[in-house]
Design a protein around this nucleic acid. Sequence first.
DNA 1: TTATAAATACGTCAAATGTCGTATTGAAAA
DNA 2: TTTTCAATACGACATTTGACGTATTTATAA
Lengths: 218, 218
Amino acid sequence: MEKVIKTVIVDDNTFLIKAIQEKLSFFDDIQIKFTALDGSDLLTKISNNHNIDVILMDIDMPILNGIEATEIIKNKYPHIKVIMLTVFDNDENIFNAIKAGADGYLLKEVEPKTLYEGIIDTLNGGAAMNPSIALKTLKLLRNPIDLDNKKEEEIIKLTTREVDVLEQLSKGLNYINIAENLFLSPATVRKHIENIYTKLQVHNKLEAVQKAKKNNLI
Amino acid sequence: MEKVIKTVIVDDNTFLIKAIQEKLSFFDDIQIKFTALDGSDLLTKISNNHNIDVILMDIDMPILNGIEATEIIKNKYPHIKVIMLTVFDNDENIFNAIKAGADGYLLKEVEPKTLYEGIIDTLNGGAAMNPSIALKTLKLLRNPIDLDNKKEEEIIKLTTREVDVLEQLSKGLNYINIAENLFLSPATVRKHIENIYTKLQVHNKLEAVQKAKKNNLI
DNA sequence: TTATAAATACGTCAAATGTCGTATTGAAAA
DNA sequence: TTTTCAATACGACATTTGACGTATTTATAA
């Protein structure tokens, strides 16, 4: 028989705590030891009982947020695995959470089974990650952003097709070649690029590529 | 109904190709367009048919290895997803594969279902990764090693004035503005740029700026 | 069911860019 | 001293790009 996985949930929203608990209720070996409503609350409770395997940590919380809490926890109890469980997937949060020592990063809409497997993988010495988060970490590795030089991250939303086109643009290809690569009409490529320029508020290829890289869109 | 996923397998071991094919045979929407025995073989075959969704790429191969091949492929066909599929999980391979533009990194022992899901996730704009690989990428992000592998660096000599112009170019300025900034005639700016293109062996602004950055000229 | 969004595509026009050729001047190198 | 190179500059021409408007189809969300 497998031994239980002593789990802690930290979230300032009691409804979301309930939701996570329900997701995990399918799995007999998950044991919720306690829950906490913010980082400070967690620290208090954990100092009385640090016999914990894994913490599921929200980020946006009052008093002490999830990233600060993670840093403290991982410093004091490095054996405890911390998996971020949040609705936010912006670069800065991801990067800071990783820097703080998080062992995984999942989005709240995660399937129960995926969440469970993520916990197991993490305890087995891996890291749990949504594919979309994984991609962002790859991009961060390729193109290290300067977080100091980066205030409020604009939320620029490009469609997948627009990203395809932008990637091609970034290789220095012209419209004709991009069209050939993506099996499109050059007219469509131009239209996509037009839309990209509008969204990025730029007026030529070079600016588009630079802004896209800066915002880790490509 | 979902459309088929045009897939290519690259591996110098025909037995392993067979093994991968068998793993994917469970899934009706995976269509193996062709297989290749090394990077060079892949490039030849893909130049005749680049209507491909995803490439499963081994790393250790003769003639042209998987990382070099990935770099070439992603430069020419950035829309094609490349997932590394290898037995090696050392930091250097992972880091270099990511730098080369890989969209995922899975180990060969991967379960058929996991491999399939990884392909799907990647095509949906995510990244496929084993948990153990994911952890390594996190560690690389926390502690960035600079494996700045500069091989045979070409010796490109630009004049100081050309560098001036190139720097302006890299800011996304047009000829008129560059001329104003440097107190030149636009015609002169154009001539400088023409000479820069010749020296760098490129044919447009974007390529010039990228090559210049790569060679630390700006 | 009806909006809405995404992806596709065409046409037009002006502006910018890439590629030629040619030429003058001054400074540095042979 | 002669030659070469760097920097400046003009003209011409074809191609590419950027900025409009418009329109159809499909999938998804309200």
